[in-house]
Nucleic acid binder design. Structure first.
Lengths: 328, 328
DNA sequence: TTACTTTCCGTAAGCGCTTACGAAAGTAGT
DNA sequence: ACTACTTTCGTAAGCGCTTACGGAAAGTAA
């Protein structure tokens, strides 16, 4: 029923050899435009998808590892999605994937050919270690002098806050946490810049620590409003915290978005599904697929000895049902 | 540095052919005890681990799929761990893994050779569908007339509640949710039985719905205690809810475990790490590795046409820092 | 001893792909 | 028209395993 076509069948269908098919699959040179098209047509006709297992076996055994910051909460929804995308991408390209276990000192115990790092600080010992070992790596995050890819966190904070300002809000809470981390620092930075543009001074008591959990967001927001916070909007640095914020507001008798607007960050449908607001959570969308694809590309460059290059991937505010024009 | 040994090298080291090595790897017949030992020694000596990619390529292309109940929250910590273990196990055995996408009606769009189902009800249409299609499957859960594997949820509830009773507690809250699901029904059943053994009648207001989230647990417990609940212990049907319960109690000025004891379910260190109680969360441990391994074994039996068989895997209470003897 | 089993193990053909290598055909330079 | 490239593509040798097949060695029966 679900027998998949092989490269052999595609070759026969197109009247060429399997070598040629492989070449067009990997878009390598040495195939005329005409046959290239013909092969592509056969691929489509047979719904051919290369077997990644065979691919990984025949390719040079390139193992790419993922190394996690020791403090990274592995089970965060965003991270799980990230991992899923990364593995899918690597597989598709015929690479092997292995998680690099952190030994003592947080340094890896053994090394694959290339590694992708997640959640490292600028002065993380692993960066220096990998550089010393000569193992190419790319950081998902930002640090000077290394290959990195990161979403435009600053711009995300900017977009979210401007959106709130445009709706007439003036007192805007920021629900953050993990303030040592660059990503969240940047989101906060965007928020501050937007406030500044609007001539609104930042206030210490508008910065809440939600620890990047739903419960943390709930407790922080509840406490803030219980002690008389007059804010009409909150910008949370993650969807989970936004969810917590919404629950807290509900429990205090406030309705979202009529009384208070809430915007999240990440735009994970899996998280926001818990919401009872039909139009969904207003949130800053990160393109995880884009980020992981770029990470892999940069790593390949590193393996080829190309010069260091980094990339920022854009984010976009998705205005939905939890933000509304300010009233009163 | 990290060049792994191949079967070829093991064969040379042991002075046999690769065929023989493969036979001992798969523990097939036709190898004398003497050479079997010798090969095993070489395997250890070279720290040989078979390459699962090559394995998957050479084996009959057996694809096993995982099908999720449509309502299953994919990003639940327990489920992520489950998935991780399942994939590792399948890989190790040289099987391919693919997630089976649910089409409309919740039925799969195409079928692999065998499937593992998670979170299905007894009358889930997928069960009948797979049976009709003649595709072997195993259910992680319980249902009559099919191959299934499940933790002993009832016994877990029993152990947890008896533990609390043994510590002198008499008013014990149960924090559940998703009451349609068999697993949670069973945990509740164990709780009820333990209460009954102790001659304590169950009370409607001792059953809370925490929706299996941390926040849900928090809200339910907070509301209960705010409206005068005099309980001294709570048995939560998941670690996440237990965490929420603990936070709620804290916020109400109660300390755990001095004022109130809390026991969770699943025993996921990743979840309980958020706790500030040094000795950790008292919880009912599920052996995920055992469950997934059994699921794969049962599926293999199904593929071989063996008669239907099911298995319950034991759970064990891990008494730690969130339970203590009742005072007053 | 011969004939016939049984046990043990080596050989080689795959699994589906990638990629040197070299042959054939086309292009250019003289 | 002849040499010298260049482009295009087929051939075949792997990647690290599994497994059907068959041969050699060893055991059993006469």
């Amino acid at each position: 029923m679900s027998e998949r076509a092989t490269i052999q069948q595609v070759a026969e269908h197109a009247g060429v050899s399997i070598g040629t098919v492989s070449r067009v699959l990997n878009s390598r040179a040495g195939v005329s435009q005409a046959t290239r098209e013909r092969v592509r047509a056969s691929i489509r006709a047979l719904a051919f998808r290369p077997d990644h297992v065979a691919r990984a076996l025949s390719k040079a055994p390139l193992r790419v590892g993922l190394s996690l910051a020791s403090g990274t909460r592995r089970l965060t929804p965003f991270f799980m999605l990230f991992l899923e995308h990364l593995i899918a991408r690597l597989q598709q390209d015929g690479y092997r994937f292995e998680e690099v276990p952190a030994g003592r000192d947080g340094l890896p115990e053994w090394l694959p050919n290339g590694v992708i790092l997640h959640g490292a600080h600028e002065d993380d010992p692993r960066l220096a270690y990998l550089r010393d070992q000569g193992v190419p790596f790319v950081l998902v995050g930002r640090a000077p002098g290394v290959r990195w890819v990161a979403p435009d966190d600053h711009d995300g904070g900017l977009q979210a806050t401007r959106h709130l300002l445009a709706l007439g809000h003036r007192e805007i809470l920021h629900l953050g946490g993990l303030m040592g981390h660059q990503a969240f620092q940047d989101r906060y930075g965007g928020y501050l810049q937007a406030l500044d543009e609007a001539g609104i001074g930042p206030r210490r008591d508008w910065l809440l620590d939600g620890g990047f959990t739903t419960l943390g967001g709930y407790r922080a927001v509840r406490r803030a409003f219980e002690s008389g916070c007059a804010c009409t909007a909150v910008f949370a640095a993650s969807d989970e915290m936004a969810l917590g914020a919404i629950a807290a507001l509900e429990d205090l008798g406030l309705t979202v978005p009529l009384d208070v607007s809430v915007v999240g960050f990440d735009d994970l449908p899996e998280v926001a599904d818990a919401l009872r607001i039909p139009e969904g959570l207003t949130s800053v969308r990160q393109d995880i697929a884009h980020i992981t694809a770029t990470a892999v590309t940069l790593l390949q460059e590193g393996l080829n000895g190309a010069p260091i290059r980094s990339e920022t991937v854009p984010v976009q505010l998705m205005a939905r049902g939890t933000t509304a024009r300010r009233r009163r």
